[in-house]
Amino acid sequence: MAVGARSGRDEGEERPDDAVAHETEEDGALEKPHRSFWKELPLLIGIALLLALLIKTFLVQAFSIPSDSMQDTLQRGDRVLVDKLTPWFGSEPERGEVVVFHDPANWLSGEPTPEPNIAQKALSWIGLMPSAEEKDLIKRTIAIGGDTVECKKGGPVVVNGKALDEPYIYPGNTACDDAPFGPLKVPEGKIWVMGDHRQNSQDSRYHMQDSTGGFVPVDKVVGRAVVIAWPVTRWSTLPIPDTFDQPGIGNQAAATALGLGAAGLAPVGLGPAALGLAGAVPLVMWRRRKLTSGRTDG
């Protein structure tokens, strides 16, 4: 009887090995197959490119400094990050800001501009390489719409009757001895810009006979250069100098307001591209985890 009872229990009950096998098979049926990383790669690239394009268009763009016109503040080869977001909220350049702007009246005439091929045009459009077609400059905003600005030979730059103490001027340079000017009233919607390397900068002073009178339209401003991002040994912010805060010179806007500069620039797509990739990776990894850990109903 004992043997018979034991045999019946063995027939009616699954052995431990059978139970384990059954559960494993059932779990295997419920699990979704893992997707190959290589199948996810196009999605990762697509998201990265989209984010890079959005960042370059609306948030921040990197520019390379190709000349010496902004020394010693900016050196040839520096990469600066330009804030492009603030202008979308109606902010305009303020005195003292280093700003990037589109060539307002053929200031870069004569500068070589190589003809890009289709691939280069596509990559520059999404911010993965410099644009050969864009002609941008970088300078310091000295005066804004409504200001009166002048500089006599041997003297300082004067804005609204206040002399500027300009510690950022290249050592050994004068404020404007190579090209004195003014007094000039800056029209509304325009800015007056000068390079920090005064004796090596083709800035507003040298374009007073142009259609713009040497003034840069605000709508030509790309944004304010806020950080020297590369090389790492040169990393620093680009604050507004204290000289522009002195009483009587005018109302100084918040430090987040945009501004640009003047010297031929080459846009650099690495900043937006890197940010786009950084944003795309967690999105794709989250999607992969969700797919691989999912379970079907029933």
Rank of each mutant, 00 (worst) to 15 (best):
G250L: 01
L50C: 08
L260I: 07
P93M: 04
G294V: 09
D78A: 08
D196Y: 00
K56M: 09
G264W: 13
S211P: 11
V100H: 06
K185L: 09
G12S: 11
G182M: 07
E92P: 02
T57Q: 10
F63A: 14
F63E: 15
D10H: 12
P231L: 01
N173E: 03
L275P: 08
P104W: 00
P66N: 14
F63S: 14
K220F: 01
D297H: 11
I142D: 15
E150G: 09
P187L: 14
V268Q: 13
P130C: 05
A229R: 09
A163H: 06
F181M: 15
K162I: 06
S91N: 04
T113R: 13
Q246D: 02
F215I: 09
H207N: 05
E94R: 01
R289D: 13
G172A: 01
E31C: 07
V98A: 09
N117E: 03
W125K: 14
G248V: 06
T233Y: 02
F101H: 07
G298F: 13
V216S: 06
A48K: 11
D219M: 00
L283K: 13
G46K: 15
T212G: 08
R15S: 14
N160F: 02
E11I: 07
D210L: 11
M1H: 10
V227S: 05
V186K: 10
P104T: 14
G213E: 11
L30F: 01
D83R: 01
L277F: 05
L291I: 07
T113M: 14
V268C: 12
P167C: 05
R224A: 11
I142L: 13
D103T: 03
R95H: 03
T292Q: 11
A278T: 15
A62I: 04
S124M: 05
Q246R: 07
G96S: 03
A175F: 04
H34R: 06
S204V: 06
V99Q: 10
G145D: 02
